[in-house]
Protein backbone atom coordinates (compact mmCIF):
# COMPACT_ATOMS: atom_id res chain seq x y z
CA UNK A 1 0.00 0.00 0.00
CA UNK A 2 2.68 2.41 1.06
CA UNK A 3 4.73 1.54 -1.99
CA UNK A 4 1.82 2.32 -4.27
CA UNK A 5 1.49 5.72 -2.65
CA UNK A 6 5.17 6.44 -3.18
CA UNK A 7 4.96 5.50 -6.85
CA UNK A 8 1.86 7.62 -7.25
CA UNK A 9 3.64 10.57 -5.63
CA UNK A 10 6.74 10.11 -7.76
CA UNK A 11 4.77 9.95 -10.99
CA UNK A 12 2.63 13.00 -10.44
CA UNK A 13 5.60 14.98 -9.09
CA UNK A 14 7.73 13.95 -12.03
CA UNK A 15 5.10 15.27 -14.45
CA UNK A 16 5.29 18.66 -12.77
CA UNK A 17 9.06 18.36 -12.95
CA UNK A 18 8.82 18.04 -16.72
CA UNK A 19 7.33 21.52 -16.86
CA UNK A 20 10.25 22.85 -14.80
CA UNK A 21 12.51 21.14 -17.28
CA UNK A 22 10.75 22.77 -20.22
CA UNK A 23 11.12 26.26 -18.75
CA UNK A 24 14.75 25.50 -17.88
CA UNK A 25 15.24 24.36 -21.48
CA UNK A 26 14.13 27.82 -22.55
CA UNK A 27 16.99 29.24 -20.52
CA UNK A 28 19.42 26.89 -22.17
CA UNK A 29 18.35 27.84 -25.68
CA UNK A 30 19.30 31.49 -25.33
CA UNK A 31 22.27 30.83 -23.10
CA UNK A 32 23.79 28.62 -25.79
CA UNK A 33 23.89 31.36 -28.40
CA UNK A 34 24.34 34.50 -26.35
CA UNK A 35 25.37 33.57 -22.79
CA UNK A 36 22.30 35.50 -21.69
CA UNK A 37 18.94 34.40 -20.35
CA UNK A 38 15.56 36.01 -20.01
CA UNK A 39 14.97 36.64 -16.32
CA UNK A 40 11.37 37.45 -17.19
CA UNK A 41 10.78 33.95 -18.56
CA UNK A 42 8.15 33.26 -15.89
CA UNK A 43 6.15 36.30 -16.92
CA UNK A 44 6.49 35.20 -20.52
CA UNK A 45 4.93 31.86 -19.57
CA UNK A 46 2.12 33.66 -17.75
CA UNK A 47 1.34 36.31 -20.37
CA UNK A 48 1.34 33.64 -23.10
CA UNK A 49 -1.09 31.57 -21.01
CA UNK A 50 -3.40 34.58 -20.58
CA UNK A 51 -3.21 35.34 -24.28
CA UNK A 52 -4.10 31.72 -25.10
CA UNK A 53 -6.99 31.91 -22.65
CA UNK A 54 -8.25 35.02 -24.44
CA UNK A 55 -8.07 33.19 -27.75
CA UNK A 56 -10.19 30.43 -26.22
CA UNK A 57 -12.63 33.01 -24.83
CA UNK A 58 -12.94 34.43 -28.32
CA UNK A 59 -14.22 31.04 -29.39
CA UNK A 60 -11.14 29.56 -30.97
CA UNK A 61 -11.11 25.75 -30.61
CA UNK A 62 -8.35 24.33 -28.37
CA UNK A 63 -6.21 22.90 -31.15
CA UNK A 64 -6.30 26.14 -33.13
CA UNK A 65 -5.57 28.14 -30.00
CA UNK A 66 -2.27 26.28 -29.46
CA UNK A 67 -0.48 27.57 -32.60
CA UNK A 68 -1.84 31.04 -31.82
CA UNK A 69 -0.46 30.92 -28.29
CA UNK A 70 2.87 29.59 -29.48
CA UNK A 71 3.14 32.32 -32.10
CA UNK A 72 2.50 34.86 -29.39
CA UNK A 73 5.32 33.31 -27.36
CA UNK A 74 7.70 33.57 -30.30
CA UNK A 75 6.82 37.23 -30.85
CA UNK A 76 7.19 37.98 -27.14
CA UNK A 77 10.57 36.24 -27.12
CA UNK A 78 11.72 38.28 -30.11
CA UNK A 79 10.52 41.42 -28.37
CA UNK A 80 12.55 40.63 -25.26
CA UNK A 81 15.65 40.09 -27.40
CA UNK A 82 15.20 43.29 -29.36
CA UNK A 83 14.19 45.52 -26.47
CA UNK A 84 16.19 44.11 -23.60
CA UNK A 85 19.11 42.04 -24.76
CA UNK A 86 20.55 43.09 -28.09
CA UNK A 87 21.91 46.50 -27.14
CA UNK A 88 23.41 45.20 -23.92
CA UNK A 89 25.18 42.38 -25.75
CA UNK A 90 26.51 44.76 -28.38
CA UNK A 91 28.03 46.87 -25.60
CA UNK A 92 29.36 43.70 -23.99
CA UNK A 93 27.48 44.75 -20.86
CA UNK A 94 25.45 42.70 -18.40
CA UNK A 95 22.57 45.16 -18.70
CA UNK A 96 20.36 42.42 -20.14
CA UNK A 97 19.92 41.07 -16.60
CA UNK A 98 18.15 44.20 -15.41
CA UNK A 99 16.42 44.80 -18.73
CA UNK A 100 14.84 41.35 -18.88
CA UNK A 101 13.71 41.67 -15.25
CA UNK A 102 12.14 45.02 -16.07
CA UNK A 103 10.36 43.67 -19.14
CA UNK A 104 9.10 40.82 -16.96
CA UNK A 105 7.74 43.27 -14.36
CA UNK A 106 6.13 45.24 -17.13
CA UNK A 107 4.48 42.06 -18.41
CA UNK A 108 3.28 41.30 -14.90
CA UNK A 109 1.64 44.70 -14.44
CA UNK A 110 0.17 44.61 -17.90
CA UNK A 111 -1.34 41.20 -17.19
CA UNK A 112 -2.86 42.43 -13.91
CA UNK A 113 -4.40 45.38 -15.70
CA UNK A 114 -5.65 43.53 -18.74
CA UNK A 115 -6.77 40.24 -17.24
CA UNK A 116 -7.17 41.02 -13.55
CA UNK A 117 -5.61 39.57 -10.45
CA UNK A 118 -7.80 36.53 -10.04
CA UNK A 119 -6.83 33.04 -11.00
CA UNK A 120 -9.00 31.77 -13.80
CA UNK A 121 -9.64 28.24 -15.01
CA UNK A 122 -8.23 27.29 -18.37
CA UNK A 123 -10.71 25.19 -20.36
CA UNK A 124 -9.38 22.16 -22.16
CA UNK A 125 -11.01 19.31 -24.06
CA UNK A 126 -8.50 16.86 -22.60
CA UNK A 127 -10.31 14.86 -19.89
CA UNK A 128 -9.12 15.32 -16.33
CA UNK A 129 -10.75 12.22 -14.84
CA UNK A 130 -8.13 9.86 -13.50
CA UNK A 131 -7.53 6.61 -15.29
CA UNK A 132 -5.74 3.57 -13.88
CA UNK A 133 -2.44 2.70 -15.48
CA UNK A 134 -0.37 -0.11 -13.88
CA UNK A 135 -2.06 0.63 -10.58
CA UNK A 136 -1.30 4.33 -10.71
CA UNK A 137 -4.03 6.84 -11.24
CA UNK A 138 -3.12 9.42 -13.81
CA UNK A 139 -5.14 11.89 -15.87
CA UNK A 140 -4.99 12.42 -19.61
CA UNK A 141 -4.21 16.00 -18.81
CA UNK A 142 -1.02 14.94 -17.09
CA UNK A 143 -0.17 12.65 -19.97
CA UNK A 144 -0.64 15.56 -22.36
CA UNK A 145 1.93 17.56 -20.37
CA UNK A 146 4.51 14.79 -20.72
CA UNK A 147 3.77 14.30 -24.42
CA UNK A 148 3.96 18.03 -25.11
CA UNK A 149 7.25 18.50 -23.27
CA UNK A 150 8.96 15.55 -24.92
CA UNK A 151 7.63 16.39 -28.35
CA UNK A 152 8.81 20.00 -28.42
CA UNK A 153 12.20 19.12 -26.94
CA UNK A 154 12.70 16.30 -29.43
CA UNK A 155 11.81 18.59 -32.33
CA UNK A 156 14.19 21.33 -31.20
CA UNK A 157 17.01 18.89 -30.47
CA UNK A 158 16.56 17.32 -33.92
CA UNK A 159 16.63 20.78 -35.45
CA UNK A 160 19.86 21.57 -33.63
CA UNK A 161 21.58 18.35 -34.59
CA UNK A 162 20.30 17.60 -38.06
CA UNK A 163 19.97 20.93 -39.83
CA UNK A 164 22.71 23.29 -40.92
CA UNK A 165 20.96 26.16 -39.15
CA UNK A 166 21.02 24.14 -35.95
CA UNK A 167 24.74 23.51 -36.35
CA UNK A 168 25.17 27.24 -36.91
CA UNK A 169 23.54 27.67 -33.48
CA UNK A 170 26.23 25.55 -31.93
CA UNK A 171 28.93 27.31 -33.92
CA UNK A 172 27.84 30.69 -32.55
CA UNK A 173 27.85 29.21 -29.09
CA UNK A 174 31.36 27.74 -29.55
CA UNK A 175 33.00 30.79 -31.14
CA UNK A 176 30.93 33.77 -32.13
CA UNK A 177 33.67 35.56 -34.08
CA UNK A 178 34.64 32.50 -36.08
CA UNK A 179 30.97 31.81 -36.83
CA UNK A 180 30.62 35.32 -38.24
CA UNK A 181 33.55 34.60 -40.56
CA UNK A 182 31.59 31.65 -41.98
CA UNK A 183 28.75 33.99 -42.89
CA UNK A 184 26.63 33.10 -39.87
CA UNK A 185 25.02 36.21 -38.45
CA UNK A 186 25.33 35.94 -34.67
CA UNK A 187 22.64 38.59 -34.20
CA UNK A 188 20.12 36.60 -36.19
CA UNK A 189 21.02 33.36 -34.50
CA UNK A 190 20.50 34.98 -31.10
CA UNK A 191 17.17 36.38 -32.30
CA UNK A 192 16.10 32.93 -33.39
CA UNK A 193 17.12 31.43 -30.06
CA UNK A 194 15.00 33.98 -28.20
CA UNK A 195 12.09 33.22 -30.50
CA UNK A 196 12.43 29.49 -29.76
CA UNK A 197 12.78 30.19 -26.07
CA UNK A 198 9.55 32.20 -26.19
CA UNK A 199 7.84 29.34 -28.00
CA UNK A 200 8.93 26.89 -25.33
CA UNK A 201 7.71 29.24 -22.58
CA UNK A 202 4.32 29.64 -24.24
CA UNK A 203 3.96 25.89 -24.58
CA UNK A 204 4.81 25.47 -20.89
CA UNK A 205 2.04 27.96 -20.10
CA UNK A 206 -0.52 26.21 -22.29
CA UNK A 207 0.33 22.78 -20.91
CA UNK A 208 0.32 23.71 -17.26
CA UNK A 209 -2.62 26.14 -17.16
CA UNK A 210 -5.44 23.59 -17.20
CA UNK A 211 -3.85 22.01 -14.10
CA UNK A 212 -2.82 25.09 -12.14
CA UNK A 213 -5.27 27.74 -13.42
CA UNK A 214 -4.13 31.03 -14.97
CA UNK A 215 -3.20 34.06 -12.88
CA UNK A 216 -0.55 36.74 -12.79
CA UNK A 217 1.50 34.83 -10.21
CA UNK A 218 1.05 31.40 -11.77
CA UNK A 219 4.64 31.17 -12.97
CA UNK A 220 6.60 32.89 -10.21
CA UNK A 221 7.18 29.67 -8.30
CA UNK A 222 7.50 27.68 -11.50
CA UNK A 223 10.32 29.84 -12.79
CA UNK A 224 12.17 29.57 -9.48
CA UNK A 225 12.13 25.79 -9.82
CA UNK A 226 13.18 26.06 -13.42
CA UNK A 227 16.16 28.12 -12.31
CA UNK A 228 17.11 25.46 -9.81
CA UNK A 229 16.80 22.80 -12.48
CA UNK A 230 18.86 24.81 -14.97
CA UNK A 231 21.60 25.49 -12.44
CA UNK A 232 21.70 21.96 -11.05
CA UNK A 233 21.71 20.36 -14.51
CA UNK A 234 24.01 22.91 -16.09
CA UNK A 235 23.16 25.20 -18.95
CA UNK A 236 24.26 22.89 -21.74
CA UNK A 237 22.42 19.62 -21.67
CA UNK A 238 18.78 19.27 -22.71
CA UNK A 239 18.86 15.68 -21.51
CA UNK A 240 20.21 16.93 -18.19
CA UNK A 241 17.32 19.30 -17.48
CA UNK A 242 14.81 16.52 -18.12
CA UNK A 243 16.52 14.19 -15.66
CA UNK A 244 16.96 16.86 -13.00
CA UNK A 245 13.42 18.14 -13.59
CA UNK A 246 11.97 14.65 -13.11
CA UNK A 247 14.07 14.19 -10.00
CA UNK A 248 13.17 17.53 -8.44
CA UNK A 249 9.47 17.11 -9.25
CA UNK A 250 9.28 13.72 -7.56
CA UNK A 251 11.36 14.87 -4.62
CA UNK A 252 8.98 17.78 -4.09
CA UNK A 253 5.87 15.67 -4.03
CA UNK A 254 7.47 13.13 -1.70
CA UNK A 255 8.60 15.95 0.59
CA UNK A 256 5.17 17.49 0.73
CA UNK A 257 3.62 14.07 1.47
CA UNK A 258 6.03 12.97 4.17
CA UNK A 259 7.21 16.25 5.70
CA UNK A 260 4.29 18.53 5.05
CA UNK A 261 3.01 20.55 2.15
CA UNK A 262 4.63 23.71 3.54
CA UNK A 263 8.00 22.15 2.74
CA UNK A 264 7.15 21.65 -0.90
CA UNK A 265 9.40 24.44 -2.15
CA UNK A 266 12.36 23.40 -0.03
CA UNK A 267 14.00 20.67 -2.12
CA UNK A 268 14.47 22.95 -5.11
CA UNK A 269 16.26 25.57 -3.08
CA UNK A 270 18.33 23.03 -1.16
CA UNK A 271 19.38 21.40 -4.43
CA UNK A 272 20.24 24.81 -5.84
CA UNK A 273 22.45 25.71 -2.90
CA UNK A 274 24.11 22.29 -2.81
CA UNK A 275 24.81 22.46 -6.50
CA UNK A 276 26.32 25.94 -6.28
CA UNK A 277 28.51 24.79 -3.40
CA UNK A 278 29.64 21.50 -4.85
CA UNK A 279 29.44 21.74 -8.63
CA UNK A 280 28.72 25.26 -9.93
CA UNK A 281 28.91 24.18 -13.57
CA UNK A 282 25.97 21.83 -13.01
CA UNK A 283 25.90 18.05 -13.11
CA UNK A 284 25.86 17.92 -16.89
CA UNK A 285 27.73 21.16 -17.46
CA UNK A 286 31.25 21.44 -18.73
CA UNK A 287 33.73 23.57 -16.84
CA UNK A 288 34.45 26.68 -18.82
CA UNK A 289 38.12 27.41 -19.04
CA UNK A 290 38.73 30.99 -19.90
CA UNK A 291 42.08 31.92 -21.34
CA UNK A 292 43.20 35.33 -20.21
Amino acid sequence: MDQAVIIQMVVSGALMGLVYALVAYGFQLTFATSKSINFGQGELVMVSAFFSLTLTDLGLPYYLMIPGGLLFGVIAGLFVERAGVRLALEQKSEGWILMTIIIGLFGFSAAENIWGRDDRPFPTPIPSEPIQLFGISITWLEVSVAVGVFMIMAIIELFKRKTLLGKAFEAVSADRDAAELMGISATRTIMLSYGLSGLVAALAGILISPITTVGPTMASVLVLKAFSVAVVAGLESGFGVVLVGLFLGSLESLTSYYVGSGWREAPGLVLLILSLAIRPTGIFGKAVIRKV
Binding site: E170, A174, D177, A178
Partner: peptide
Amino acid sequence: GRKVFGPL
Protein backbone atom coordinates in the same frame (compact mmCIF):
# COMPACT_ATOMS: atom_id res chain seq x y z
CA GLY B 1 44.66 30.71 -33.47
CA ARG B 2 42.59 28.50 -35.84
CA LYS B 3 39.30 28.95 -33.98
CA VAL B 4 37.69 25.68 -34.95
CA PHE B 5 34.28 24.97 -33.41
CA GLY B 6 35.59 22.64 -30.70
CA PRO B 7 32.44 20.78 -29.66
CA LEU B 8 31.40 20.16 -33.28
